[in-house]
């Protein structure tokens, strides 16, 4: 099985690489459209700034590449947000796979901390990315912007208010949390993706 990890100017791509290597899989980390298109599965990870990374993706022509993919794609964290229609981080139009806006968390009291950092509970899980075992388990989040609940929401969690912990539509899957940093639960989710 050939797994491609999309390489662009976002941080923390190597932790997904390490996670797959723990399963004995050697992914290719690439920004080559042909190599990405030819993979069995594609992972679109990243942490960083939506505005800056969208600009870079367009310069590389990777926006068209990603939209043309028909194999299973997993967006992680910023990768999920970039798959949405628009982000208020840099007021930027994104890839538009998921027709929803990405907004910034607004604290309602001093107990509401932003960024949302730490382990939070997955609820209402849907799609093959998750299985019954995963409902109610903790996974690791670190982000200041969020995707509201919408028809593509595949799992929810709550910080300040409920929001999308995961999305899915056709061959596109996405998680706001980091499965590669979410202990055994995260490994299970990554394996579910690899078995799609």
């Amino acid at each position: 099985m050939k797994i491609a990890i999309i390489k662009y100017n976002a941080g923390n791509i190597c932790s997904v690489d390490y996670a797959l290597r723990r399963f004995g899989i050697e992914p290719v980390i690439t920004s080559d459209p042909e190599e990405i298109g030819g993979a069995d599965k594609v992972i679109f990870p990243g942490v960083g700034h939506a505005g800056a990374t969208m600009l870079h993706l367009r310069q590389l022509g990777l926006d068209r590449t990603i939209l043309s993919l028909r194999q299973p794609v997993l967006g992680i964290c910023l990768g999920m947000q970039l798959l949405c229609r628009h982000s208020s981080e840099g007021d930027v139009d994104c890839l538009g796979v998921f027709d929803v806006e990405v907004d910034r968390f607004i604290p309602q009291s001093h107990a509401d901390k932003v960024p949302h950092i730490g382990w939070n509970v997955l609820k209402d899980v849907k799609t093959k990315l998750f299985d019954a075992e995963i409902e109610g388990r903790h996974v690791y989040f670190v982000h200041s912007y969020f995707v509201p609940l919408n028809p593509h929401t595949a799992a929810t969690t709550s910080h300040i208010h409920p929001f999308s912990a995961a999305l899915s539509k056709d061959n596109f899957y996405a998680t706001q949390f980091h499965p590669e940093k979410s202990g055994d639960t995260g490994e299970r989710i990554l394996k579910n993706f690899l078995h799609l």
Partner: peptide, 8 residues
């Protein structure tokens, strides 16, 4: 550490 651990 990054290669071995699956927590941040």
């Amino acid at each position: 550490v990054a290669a071995r651990l699956n927590i941040p």
